[in-house]
């Protein structure tokens, strides 16, 4: 299966040679591949940009960059500082202060997996078009890794192992910022969580308990319109009733306005991307600013805390009423979305 996909992938390469672009030196030792995708994700194929196709060597380089604190301005912060594999690539904090400047961030670190399918934009407000473009944000932001891209390139150029890896993966004499971002993107895109108890149950490899099954039904009834089964997100943006009003201090450039900041569409005021519920037990605290510590608090919010305004998602206007036993059941089901295999596999 893997061999076949390599064969198919080598075709566009050959074609690229004859189309008059840069001649590709044919040392086809690069191992392009398409990851296995479980039917339980309910997606078609593995989308990736033509300009940055996954290869084993690219992913390995990206992984090294991802965990390397030397990429940051002070040599102390890596991607993993805020997106740690053991917490499904989050940091367990609401608004972290562990970037280079030590200043608090304004949003919480989302988990990083199944992002290949986030076609409607990345970040809580969908402002980043793709991983390749997004990476420059954490790399250069003073409150995150605070790197100067030119200094970063000097560092990588001076490391013979990096130098060789970059040359191998990208076949260009000079390391460029675009390559750094592409390699990291390959690693991040390769993170796929699809082996939770829920997945195994759907594949008839495991059974859910009575309680978990009840929880599943409650989830389907109350949550699945947004946290759609498969990826457990509809990849869309909604106002789920966290706030009534959205202050806009000029220095923050609309940061509290959610998706509106990107689209300037009044209907998007206070709307954020539906986060996945996969691995949800591992990724507390919750919501874009990490305001809820526990899933109990989240259910309290949906039951009693909904703030009503013009942009509130209609499905939530009455709140979501659940009895005590129903709450226990729904949380039991959410626990079946934890993918220990994925967590183990990606420990550094």
């Amino acid at each position: 299966m893997k061999k076949l996909s390599k064969l198919i992938l080598s075709l566009p390469l050959v074609w690229a040679c004859t189309s008059g672009e840069d001649p590709v030196i044919s040392e086809p030792k690069i191992h392009y591949y398409i990851p296995e995708v479980s039917s339980t994700l309910q997606v078609a194929g593995f989308p990736q940009p033509e300009r940055n196709m996954l290869s084993e060597e690219g992913v390995a380089l990206g992984k090294r960059l991802y965990f390397d604190p030397n990429l940051s301005g002070n040599g102390k912060v890596s991607c993993a500082t805020c997106h740690s594999p053991s917490l499904a690539f989050t940091d367990g904090l609401a608004l972290a202060k562990h970037g280079v400047s030590g200043k608090g961030l304004h949003r919480t670190s989302p988990p990083l997996f199944n992002l290949a399918w986030q076609s409607e934009g990345l970040f809580w407000d969908g402002g980043a078009h793709d991983l390749e473009s997004l990476n420059f944000a954490p790399l250069t932001h003073p409150d995150e890794m605070g790197a100067d891209l030119n200094e970063l390139i000097s560092y990588l150029e001076s490391d013979p192992v990096y130098k060789e890896q970059f040359e191998f993966v990208f076949s260009e004499g000079q390391i460029q910022s675009a390559q750094i971002s592409r390699a990291i993107s390959q690693y991040v895109r390769s993170l796929i969580s699809q082996d939770s108890k829920y997945d195994r149950w759907k594949r008839s490899e495991a059974e859910l308990t009575e309680l978990e099954l009840t929880g599943y039904q409650l989830y389907q009834k109350n949550c699945s319109s947004c946290h759609q089964e498969g990826l457990f997100t509809d990849r869309s943006f909604h106002n789920n009733g966290l706030d009534k009003a959205y202050p806009n201090p000029p220095a923050l450039e609309g940061l509290y306005q959610g998706r509106f900041r990107i689209t300037s569409n009044p209907e998007d005021m206070g709307a954020y991307k539906t986060p996945t519920l996969r691995n949800i037990v591992l990724t507390a605290p919750y919501m874009h600013d990490g305001r809820f510590q526990t899933l109990e608090e989240v259910l309290d919010h949906y039951q009693n805390g909904i703030q009503v305004n013009e942009t509130l998602a209609p499905a939530l206007s009455e709140g979501i009423k659940l009895s005590t036993t129903e709450r226990v059941a729904i949380i039991a089901f959410l626990n079946t979305l934890t993918d220990s295999l994925f967590i183990q596999k990606h420990q550094k």
Binding site: A128, E132, F136, L149, S181, S185
Partner: peptide, 22 residues
């Protein structure tokens, strides 16, 4: 304008690329 992993004058090292809104 739809992506920023580019080279030459579009290299994001020139402080002309937006970070949070591609």
């Amino acid at each position: 304008n739809g992506k920023t992993d580019q080279t030459g004058d579009l290299d994001p090292n020139s402080d002309m690329a937006w970070n949070w809104n591609t």
